[in-house]
Computed example of a mutant assay.
Amino acid sequence: MTDLTQTLAPARPGLAGRLRLALCIFAVLAVVPPLAHALDEPFLIVVATRMMVFAIAALSLDLILGYGAMVSFGHAAYLGLGAYAVAILSRAGIDDLVLQLLAAMAASAVFATVTGAISLRTRGVYFIMITLAFGQMAFFFFVSFSTLGGDDGVALAARSTVLGMPLLQDAPGMFYATLALLVAVFAGLYRLTLSRFGRVLTGTRESALRMQAMGFRPFPYQLTAYVIAGCLCSVAGVMLANQAIYVSPAYMSWHRSGEMMVMLVLGGVGSLTGAMAGALVTIALEEGLARLSEHWRLGFGLILVGVALFSPGGLSGLLRRVGLVRDAK
């Protein structure tokens, strides 16, 4: 009971190590466009934007996996729902990013509520398999959606507008809009995980039975976290569609869910800063290794093996071990 009591205790005031590290990451990201301009490498802005999109997705997954111990192999479904919300609304003449975000989150909330209420009645490998099944159902639904290109996907006519303004049309505008959403998602989850809700969710991860003995029903907390995670992942989907100006069912395949889990493993499960850093490093490694060799996946796999063997806590664990960050979570 001691661990649970500490988990439910109020967080200490002041800036934790994870928040300081996150601020450093945001500061570095903010200078990417002027740096890319100085180096005459505009592609860096495109890559960095993609990195931040998946950082948002990784943060959403970490809420349920790292804090709620819910291993979902269908989380990429919400990435696809966000992307297809852009495609469907664009065809209906609705190009405003705010409306598309709201529609994507609403659709994801409904899907997550229904599927989560069913999935959370299972545990362990059964939870993994049922979330995988729901994710694949969404995947094959859009594969058969012939009016939106089916398996080939569909190209968008243009990027979304923001309150009628074409802020996303150029690469720097797209970059800073994505950065703003990343900061907002991180800040929201940071406050949520430090709240009573977050502490109860973490306590449920440690021992659901003990939480019940303390008077908390785990199911409502887990379902709420599951819905929040789905909604936030759909935000990443909306931005991914705008960044690529293209939407495909491949966004919601189980392979994409697996890639998100790899990001968490690399950065550190149960650490918001680690999840964000893991996504940034994963995309950067993929881009960098792909330029070196067509067999880049072999090198990436060796890196993951090294992380699993020598730093099970990922980048967060490594930083804590060397003493650079006292509280990397």
Rank of each mutant, 00 (worst) to 15 (best):
V125M: 09
T131W: 11
Q100L: 07
G173V: 07
M165W: 15
M129V: 10
M105Y: 02
A69Y: 11
A187Y: 12
L179S: 00
D96L: 12
M105H: 01
G116P: 10
F186M: 10
L182W: 01
V183C: 12
D152N: 13
D151Q: 13
D151C: 02
D170Q: 14
Y67W: 13
A83N: 00
F111E: 00
T147Q: 14
T161N: 15
D151P: 04
V143I: 15
F111K: 01
A158P: 03
G74Y: 03
L179I: 00
A138D: 08
L89E: 06
A109P: 14
S90W: 07
V114H: 06
A76H: 10
V98S: 08
Y78L: 00
Y84A: 06
L81T: 11
G135D: 02
G80M: 11
S144V: 13
G82D: 04
Y84K: 06
I130K: 01
R159L: 05
F111I: 11
G164N: 04
V125G: 06
G124F: 06
S160W: 09
G173M: 08
V143S: 00
L181G: 00
M129Q: 07
A177F: 08
L120P: 05
L97A: 11
A171S: 15
L99Q: 05
F134K: 08
A180I: 07
I128F: 15
A87Y: 02
F140V: 14
Y176F: 01
M129N: 01
A83H: 03
G164R: 11
P166M: 11
Q169M: 12
P172H: 02
I130Y: 03
A138Y: 13
A103H: 06
L182S: 04
A171M: 14
F141Q: 12
A171H: 08
M129I: 10
S72K: 02
F73V: 05
L179A: 06
V114S: 07
P166F: 09
A184M: 13
S72V: 02
G80H: 04
